[in-house]
Deep mutational scan, measured.
Amino acid sequence: MGMPNRKYADGEVVMGRWPGSVLYYEVQVTSYDDASHLYTVKYKDGTELALKESDIRLQS
């Protein structure tokens, strides 16, 4: 078993793309699913969504 190939840690605050949009919002990573390679993130309004790594970026 190798290390999970994840870029962002639980609790890390990053920018997540809103689905169907080009806009990124501040989100907190809450979990990562090794099987689906999706991150569960929480937006400031409390919305929780699963995002692909390509829809997440570090805060500038």
Rank of each mutant, 00 (worst) to 15 (best):
E12V: 08
V27F: 13
G20L: 05
D45V: 02
R57I: 11
E48A: 07
D34M: 06
V29N: 00
T30H: 09
Y43V: 08
S31T: 07
M3D: 14
Y43W: 11
L38A: 06
K7D: 02
G16L: 08
G20I: 02
L51H: 01
K42L: 12
T40M: 12
E12W: 06
V14I: 04
L23T: 12
V27I: 05
Y8C: 03
Y25A: 08
A35T: 12
S60F: 10
M1Q: 15
T47Q: 09
E12D: 12
A9R: 09
K52P: 14
R17D: 00
V22I: 12
T30R: 08
D55T: 02
E12N: 05
D45H: 03
E12H: 05
E48S: 10
A50L: 15
E48D: 06
L51C: 04
A9S: 10
E48W: 06
P19E: 05
Y39C: 02
R57M: 14
V13Q: 08
V27T: 03
L23I: 13
D10Y: 05
A9H: 11
G11M: 05
S36M: 11
G20F: 06
P4A: 10
Q28K: 10
S54G: 09
K7S: 06
M3L: 13
S36P: 00
G20V: 02
D34Y: 08
H37F: 11
H37L: 13
E26H: 07
V29P: 00
E48L: 13
I56A: 01
S54R: 07
D55R: 02
K7V: 09
N5M: 09
Y8E: 01
N5A: 15
M3K: 15
T47K: 08
M15W: 11
L38Q: 09
Q28N: 05
Y24N: 01
K52D: 10
M1N: 15
V29E: 00
R17Y: 02
Q59Y: 11
I56W: 00
V29L: 02
L49Y: 13
S54M: 09
Q59R: 14
K7G: 03
D45F: 04
K44G: 10
M15D: 05
L51D: 00
Y43G: 09
Y39L: 02
T47M: 07
Q59N: 12
V27P: 00
Q28M: 14
A35Y: 12
Q28E: 13
L51W: 03
Y32V: 01
S36V: 08
M1L: 12
L58F: 11
S21V: 04
Y39R: 01
D33Q: 03
L38T: 13
L49F: 15
M15N: 04
R17E: 01
R6Q: 09
V27N: 00
V41C: 09
L58H: 14
K44E: 10
P19Y: 05
Q28P: 00
G20S: 05
